[in-house]
């Protein structure tokens, strides 16, 4: 293997710092601003400050700050992984990077088809953002995905994409699609159109939120149970909630890690299926052919 220069190593450490510092910042911010509570506390995102705006004040909440921290962290990780690439893969990180790229491209091609092959970076970004946001609970930071607004933003983005690809086969055809079987179905079709982003947002948000709610409830009940069972121990030993040791960690394995990654995968999968499902490729190609023929006719008549 090549000998690495000092400059290369310094850049490496810098990229790692870009990836790790936002998480540290989040932990420090959480410790500094968290109000002291006793017992059950299931609150929404805290509002740090509000920016006065003409129509409505814009509150800067914990969810927004944390999601930007996640973005910076993923950016640093990407820089670290793709640093020092060579034509033939030598380092472990290049193998890892190639594995990630190949897997996402294969996944996108398998479920979206050849036409949408360029969507691999977008899908990878959605996957990484969602998964890392949900995994923030491991550090005790408020996960942005358990705030409705963050996930609803992504869902609206996906809805715009779906509508764009439905309109690709003609705006009038898109409007006609609402009255497809019979004209009476118009309101139902509109409702089902709007229900797609709503259900995507609710699914992701509800799963992450339910995990954190159940974790808090179980931790609190274990505390009560241990004070009930082990309260007879002398002195301060009776005060320590022994049952809280270890058990919540096993639950967190399911609710934080498995559920978070699962929801990220499902969100990405639904994005792919909805975008490619709404797109009528045959109509689009037909239209394209007709347009080309018209153009050619015009050119011929001109010459």
């Amino acid at each position: 293997m090549k000998q690495r220069t000092l400059r290369f190593r310094i850049a490496d450490w810098l990229y790692l710092a870009i990836a790790a510092l936002p998480v540290l910042c989040g932990i420090v911010l959480n410790i500094l601003t968290k109000p002291p509570t006793d017992g059950i506390s299931i609150a929404g995102a805290r509002i740090f400050f509000t920016i006065p705006m003409p129509l409505q004040d814009l509150p800067i909440t914990e969810a927004q700050v944390n999601s930007f921290l996640v973005v910076i962290s993923i950016f640093g990780l990407c820089l670290y992984i793709t640093h020092g690439l060579s034509i033939k893969a030598e380092t472990k990180r290049q193998h890892f990077a190639e594995w990630v790229v190949e897997k996402t491209e294969a996944m996108v091609q398998e479920s979206m088809g050849d036409f949408f092959r360029g969507y691999a970076p977008f899908i990878a970004a959605v996957l990484a953002l969602s998964a890392f946001s949900s995994l923030l609970t491991l550090f005790g930071i408020y996960p942005p995905t358990s705030d409705m607004n963050v996930v609803a933003g992504w869902a609206i983005l996906v809805f715009i994409l779906i509508t764009y690809y439905k309109m690709k086969s003609g705006f009038l055809n898109y409007l006609k699609g609402f009255t497809k079987p019979i004209f009476v179905m118009l309101p139902l079709n509109i409702i089902s159109e709007v229900a797609t982003p709503v259900s995507m947002a609710f699914r992701h948000y509800g799963n992450v939120l339910s995990g954190s709610v159940i974790a808090v409830l179980i931790a609190y009940s274990l505390q009560s149970l241990s004070s009930l069972l082990l309260g007879w121990l002398p002195g301060f030993l009776g005060q320590i909630p022994f049952l809280q040791i270890g058990l919540p960690a096993i639950l967190s394995l399911y609710f934080d890690i498995f559920s978070g990654c699962m929801q990220a995968y499902i969100f990405a999968m639904l994005t792919m299926l909805n975008i490619s499902g709404g797109f009528a490729q045959e109509d689009y190609e037909k239209r394209k052919k007709e347009k080309l023929e018209k153009k050619n006719k015009k050119l011929k008549s001109n010459t």
């Binding site: 259900s199 609710f202 699914r203 948000y205 509800g206 799963n207 939120l209 339910s210 699962m262 929801q263 499902i266 639904l270």
Partner: peptide, 13 residues
């Protein structure tokens, strides 16, 4: 499973 869980999640919300 995750998709059929959606209605349960609505109830939870």
């Amino acid at each position: 499973c995750a998709i059929s869980e959606t209605t349960g999640i609505y109830a939870l919300v």
